[in-house]
Nucleic acid binder design. Structure first.
Lengths: 194, 194
DNA sequence: TAGATTGTTAATCGATTAACAATC
DNA sequence: TAGATTGTTAATCGATTAACAATC
């Protein structure tokens, strides 16, 4: 809508586009504090700004990545993150052979350099893409280094001080969710057919 | 507990281990249908079996992957999936140069072969790891080929028939969640300090 | 003015948590 | 028996949805 030069967009239209109910859209947009005009809708530019600010997409944040394996490397090369304020400035791996190399433009360090680099770079957020069994001990190292937010891609339920925020992205759980939903869908179909 | 030879485990202990409330554990375990013994707890072997069956970890499921880029390749090489019943049997990419190659042991095909291969392999689930802008049209192709479950790693909100299940794993949303939680945590701290 | 759309207040819903009798 | 633990039933909570007056 912004590209098309529209000044306003209605919650009704957004809802239609996203297959949601208008009330859902209005409630969500209320969080941003943007006020709409009855009959016209919400001011497009203001709304985009507010949402981007709310989601933290307006400013780049430097983060580190721990575990430069398959998944870690993929995330370092994931271009879409740039659009959403995420900048990976350094990676760490327990495999000392990787230290000194560069993956998708990101320098890889030894785990021993972690605390020093975190202080030097002043980063507050870490992406955790190591194997699950070593997750807790690595999280402890991150917390000790002063990290305040952990984006956790392992299956481990991390125990951290309450000052530290953990966002877990457990891929296997996501897949299990898909399977369970498909299964219950199928059961429902069979049930109704009998 | 199974390795240690214990026959029973109490919900209280599980809760302690996972930093949950006992009632939460009891409610969740009730879904599996396993019945525990007062004073002793739940039978360990039976419980593990039931949970694995519920989550679909007991049987391997063949799936395809569409979009053999950074993220797609990482998922093909992700060993942990094997433990959770997920087996990627073929990959597809719009880049015809990749067709015929093998990534982490998975054969890559042209998008043109998708429908044929889906029928030949009899797969019902697809992992979608392409760029967001092309997500909807690719989802349409998958649906047309008979796919019933889509594990969606793009930021797009896919529109599919109600017979098809979509599980979206939007990485950027996950990161936004982390940022918003950290922000509100910080605001709360400042608020209490004033 | 008429009607679409907002924002607020109330109602519904589902999930989480609490309470407690049953039981090994 | 005493006490820990389960499973069920009720209460609480937060989020989603509905209803509707305000307004451009």
């Amino acid at each position: 809508m912004q590209k098309e030069g529209s000044k306003y967009i209605s919650g009704t239209l957004i809802a239609q586009e996203l297959s949601l109910e208008p009330i859902q859209v209005r409630k969500d947009l209320a969080i941003t504090g943007v006020i709409g005009k009855p009959k016209k809708g919400y001011p497009v530019n203001t709304l985009i700004d507010a949402i981007e600010r709310f989601l933290g997409w307006n400013s780049m944040q430097d983060v580190i990545l721990v575990g430069a394996g398959n998944l870690g490397s993929a995330l370092m090369g994931h271009q879409e993150f740039r659009l959403h304020g995420l900048h990976i400035v350094a990676a760490f791996d327990k495999n000392t052979q990787k230290a000194g190399t560069t993956i998708h433009g990101v320098r890889v360090f030894s785990m021993n350099d972690l605390e020093t680099e975190v202080h030097k770079l002043g980063v507050k957020v870490a992406i955790l893409t190591i194997h699950s069994p070593a997750a807790q001990e690595t999280a402890d190292i991150l917390v000790k280094a002063g990290i305040l937010g952990i984006w956790n891609f392992t299956a481990a339920k991390l125990k951290v001080p309450e000052s530290v925020v953990v966002q877990t992205e457990d891929l296997s759980s996501g897949y299990a969710m898909l399977c369970v939903t498909m299964q219950s869908r199928q059961d429902a179909d069979n049930g109704s057919a009998s």
